[in-house]
Amino acid sequence: MRETTHKNARKRKTGRRHPLATVALIAIGLGLTGGAYAAFNATGSSADAATSSSSDVASGKKLFQANCATCHGLEAQGTDEAPSLIGVGAAAVDFQVGTGRMPMAMQGPQAEQKPVQFTQKEIDQLAAYVASLAPGAAIPDERYLDGNGDAAKGAELFRVNCAMCHNVAGAGGALTQGKFAPSLHGVTARHIYEAMITGPQNMPVFNDRNITPEGKRDIITYLQYIQKNPSPGGFELGSLGPVAEGLFIWIFGLGSIVALTVWITAKSN
C-alpha cells in the first residue's frame, strides 16, 4: 500500500519535469544532471528554503539569469544544451559552482574543476534561488562534516561504495570515454557530502537510505584521516599503486644502481 502511494508521488514529480529532460540528458551525457535526479530523492528534500531570505532568492535569480540562463534556460527549466535545475536543490548548486565546475568553460567529456567564479555569498544566493524553485537536496548540516565519526566504518563504506572509481586512497581513476573520477585530496568535507547526495555528472546518487548521514560523516572522517596522516611508509608516489611503483623501480631504483655500476667499473681518474 505504501509502495503505491510512493509510486503516485513519483509520477506527480515526473510530471513537473520538462517532458524531454531525460532524453536530453542522455543525449548530451554531460553537465549538471545528477542533481536533477535528486528531485526524486524523497529524503533529501528538507526545508532548506527556510534558511534563505527572499532577498537572497531575488539576488540569486538575477545572478542566475546573467550567468546560467544561457544554457539552463531563463527559468532553470533546461535547454538542449543543459539540464533542468528544477528540484536539484541547494546542495547541487553549492557543489557545482563552489568547486568551479559551473559555469562550464566548454563542452567536454565532463565538467572539470576550475577556479571558482563566484564569491561564497553569490553561490549561496544562487543556491537559494534554485532551492526556491522546488524542494531538493539541501546544504548538509555542519554536524556531519566535522570529521569526528568512525574512520574504520567510513573506510569500509568507502571501499564498498567509492573506491572502485575514486581509488582506495582517493587518488581518482578512469571512467569510460575520457571521463574520470577526480582525486578527493583537498576536497572540502562539504563538497564531498554534497557530491554524495546529489550525484554530480556520472557519479551515482548516495541518498540517505543508501548511506546514512552518519555513514557519510564516517566516510568524510576516513578521508580526512588519510590526508592528515602522511603515509607511514614515506612518499606515496601519487598513491597510484603498482604502476607508479614499477616505473619508480625501473627509472630511479635500477637507474641509480646502473649509474653506480658505471662508476664502479670506470678506471679511476
Binding site: 572509481c165 575514486h166 581513476g173 611503483e245
Partner: peptide, 19 residues
Amino acid sequence: TINPIWMYGPYDPSPISAG
C-alpha cells in the same frame, strides 16, 4: 611507500579499487 596494504584493506570479493 610500497604496497600500502593499510589503504587497500582486507580482501573482500565485493569492493575493488580504481587502478
